[in-house]
Amino acid sequence: MNYWLVKSEPGEYSYQDLENDKDIVWDGIRNYQARNYLKEMKVGDQVLYYHSGKDKAIVGLAEVSEEAFPDKNDKENKGWVAVRLAAKKAFDQSLNLEQIKNDPKLTELPLLKQSRLSVMPIEKSAFDHIIKSIS
């Protein structure tokens, strides 16, 4: 099993929207590194859901429910892919960016090094620490 973090502007598509919809096709990714990460996702992988923009916080947990398939919005056939994510749990409390930055166990989190990337892998130890911190 692998662990991931995905980012979305809450005004565009919030974790609450994902809970309401139950699952979603995670498409529209137009960054080559993020696309490659989408291709690595497997059914059952755990995904931290991060609200970017004003909120800047990890707010929920999702799961990969369908592995990479062609993004239907790829009109130029450039090999863009999508995955399907299912809502698992909204966290009672969020873990904001300042808390992440100030946590010595999270200094290697890709979120801090590649802040513009919308899909990124998370080490199991960091994932477990985040879950423990907000549970």
Rank of each mutant, 00 (worst) to 15 (best):
D27T: 12
V47A: 13
V25N: 13
D21E: 12
V43F: 04
K22P: 01
V43W: 01
N36L: 12
L38D: 05
Q46I: 10
Y49W: 14
V6I: 15
I24C: 15
Y3Q: 01
D21T: 10
E12C: 04
L48Q: 07
L38I: 09
Y3V: 01
L5H: 01
W4F: 08
Y32V: 15
I24L: 12
G11K: 09
K22F: 09
Y37G: 04
P10A: 01
D45P: 05
D23V: 03
V47S: 11
K7L: 12
L38V: 06
K39F: 03
P10S: 01
Y49D: 05
Y37D: 06
W26G: 13
G11F: 04
V43Q: 10
M41F: 06
D45C: 07
L48M: 12
E40A: 11
S8M: 04
D45R: 07
K7C: 10
R30P: 08
Y32Q: 14
E40R: 13
V43R: 05
L38Y: 02
H51V: 12
R30M: 01
V25S: 14
D23P: 00
I29W: 00
L48Y: 05
H51I: 11
R35D: 01
Q16S: 07
E40Q: 14
S52R: 01
L48D: 09
V43Y: 02
Q46V: 06
I29A: 06
Q16I: 08
E19W: 10
V47L: 12
W26S: 13
R35G: 03
Q16T: 08
S52W: 09
K7R: 00
N20G: 10
L38Q: 08
A34Y: 06
